[in-house]
């Protein structure tokens, strides 16, 4: 399961505390996916970048960041959205921040289900905070699907699926073929390394049992 770090300001003090803790229990962060919760702080983009660099220098593997503008994050990081009004398909920002690479398709809808009947390509992010997402097609490595409710993928999931993004523990993830980089429901995560090998390449569902993310094949 992922571990949540919630830094305090000033960062320097917080980082030395972190270092002290790492010293007390060496290897504590080794291989452990960490989510950075910045939702209590008001930060500028360079602060976030600086903090991420500091954590990276300590070999702490941040897989997602909560409470910041998703556009501040590189493609390796999952923004963890809170709530929102409309569904959108957004492109991750490019490194140089130039605007021409952005894809924004607003699908304004009152529905509680967003149907996407094309493959979600690498670099694209489909987000639908107010309900379920159904994808008729595959989700590529480097792509991301974020739903307030459940996620149904009639294809191969190679990227990330984040269900229950607003904290709904009843949300589930279904996919026809599991090759995922990351699965999350209501903030509980599993990355590639934590998915049992026998589930790979299988049709699966994932759900929460208390505070444990469960996965099984669909029969």
């Amino acid at each position: 399961m992922a571990f949540v770090l919630a830094p305090d300001i000033p960062f320097d003090d917080w980082l030395s505390e972190l270092d002290a803790q790492s010293k007390r229990s060496p290897g504590f962060f080794t291989g452990r996916p960490v989510i950075l919760d910045l939702s209590r702080l008001t930060l500028a983009k360079p602060d976030v970048a600086g903090l991420l660099a500091q954590l990276q220098a300590r070999s702490i593997r941040i897989i997602g960041v909560e409470g910041v503008d998703p556009c501040w994050l590189g493609p390796g990081l999952a923004p963890i959205p809170r709530s929102g009004g409309t569904a959108s398909v957004i492109e991750f920002p490019k490194d140089d921040g130039a605007p021409e690479g952005d894809i924004t398709t607003n699908t304004e809808t009152d529905e509680t289900n967003l149907l996407i009947d094309w493959p979600v390509r690498s670099g694209q992010c489909v987000s639908f905070p107010q309900g379920d997402i159904t994808i008729v097609g595959s989700v590529a490595s480097g792509a991301e699907v974020v739903a307030g409710g459940s996620i149904h993928i009639y294809g191969t999931l190679r990227g990330r699926a984040i269900a229950g993004s607003g904290g709904d523990k009843r949300a589930r993830i279904f996919c026809r073929n599991l090759e995922a980089e990351l699965l999350a429901i209501a903030g509980l995560y599993r990355t590639v390394e934590e998915i049992e090998p026998h589930l790979r390449g299988q049709p699966i569902q994932a759900w929460l049992d208390g505070n444990v993310l469960m996965m099984s094949t669909q029969d």
Partner: peptide, 14 residues
């Protein structure tokens, strides 16, 4: 292959 996938996404949008 991954970069091609990305480009296909752009072909569908840009």
């Amino acid at each position: 292959v991954r970069d091609s996938d990305r480009i296909i996404g752009m072909l569908d949008a840009k």
